[in-house]
Amino acid sequence: MSERITAEDVTHVAGLARLELSDDELERFTVQLAAVLDHAADVEALDTEGVAPTAHPLPLANVLRDDVARPGLERAEVLAAAPAVEADRFRVPPVLGPPA
């Protein structure tokens, strides 16, 4: 099996991405991600010394808008989409867990 990525790596990445994997998924994803990374490894062979990275295919720069206010959305419509609302704000569970 490929050494590209371990189950621990996959668990760590899932944490960063706020996903939880079952044992079954963890095993499957580890194998599948390793296969994709193995395939991607052929780019490693390519000499890219001195090659500038391309973040974007367009040669545009300085796209700006004027600092002029435009009407936004109705609060009622915005809050209607929210899973939970209180006092005209978006309600979420406590942001940090209870004190350790």
Binding site: L19, E20, A81, P83, F90, V92, P93, V95
Partner: peptide
């Protein structure tokens, strides 16, 4: 799970994020 779409409830925002996305 904060502003729109699915939310799966959980005791903290972080665990709610995880449950929702999972």
């Amino acid at each position: 799970g904060v502003r729109y779409g699915l939310r799966v409830d959980a005791p903290t925002t972080a665990t709610m994020n995880v449950a929702t996305r999972t």
